[in-house]
Amino acid sequence: MKYYTYFPGCSCSSEGGARAYDWSTRAISKVLDFELKELHDWNCCGSTPSGSVDELGAFCLAARDLALAEKAGLDMVTPCSACYVIFNRTNAYLKQYPKLKEKVDESLAAGDLKYNGTVRVRHTLDIIVNDIGYETIKEKVTKPLEGLKIAPYYGCQMVRPGFGFDHPETPQSLEKLIASIGGEATRFPLKTHCCGGSLIISEEDIALDLTHKLLESAASNGADCIVTVCPLCQTNLDAYQSRVNRKFKTDYRLPVFFFTQLMGLAFGLPEKELGIKKGIVSAKKVLAKYA
């Protein structure tokens, strides 16, 4: 059994929009024999916007979580690419900029906390493919996703700026994972292009252009569905797909899964446990042959 500290982040918390990602992660953890212990009393990591408003405050938000996690002495795993980049950047910057560290230390001390910089922060996909491994995953497959054509979408922040896990522009881990659960990864040239991120809220037209390009690329490469590793990418591609269709007069109906959901399906876990129905674009037709 492998143990990790688990940081779900706001989207994957029990009140968040990507709770299906959390459910399916926990469900497959039982099959793959690893345990995620949720960090007690965690706060929002600050994500990208906080640092653009108040840098020191943003580093302190992330540092509080890291300081709490340090007490457990385990690697901290997060399913969210934004949380992943924020924590890793905080770790890197605290080492690189002594003046920043001094101020963060002083702030943490006001809350009786201290952070020594020892927490290794990892993405869920990283631990699954590197700690568990493709061979073990293959052994647990009872219902291979044979014939399912899946566009592997990495998005930006899991692979960039790059914290040692997979290539920043041409990563391969999702393709290998898809193969190990019996599916077929399609070619997907835009696999690390941006989905529009949080600009979907403030500059919807601009973000929809980017989301549209991704859907177009996935569809034109023959994908039945898209697999994602990030709550925000999933929301943009799934919940805003009908808005793309309206704006560009298209008719995409591509279900957008979290990779943990597809793994759960291949392990024969019930759809309900994986939150398959939480997808806005129905997966019913695409998954009909795997029922």
Binding site: T48, V85, C156, Q157, R160, P161, G162, P168, E169, H193, C194, G196, G197, L199, E203, I206, L210
Partner: peptide, 11 residues
């Protein structure tokens, strides 16, 4: 304000 924080410029 149009930066997406996609980090492609950084890499």
């Amino acid at each position: 304000w149009y930066c997406l924080s996609c980090y492609i410029c950084t890499v």
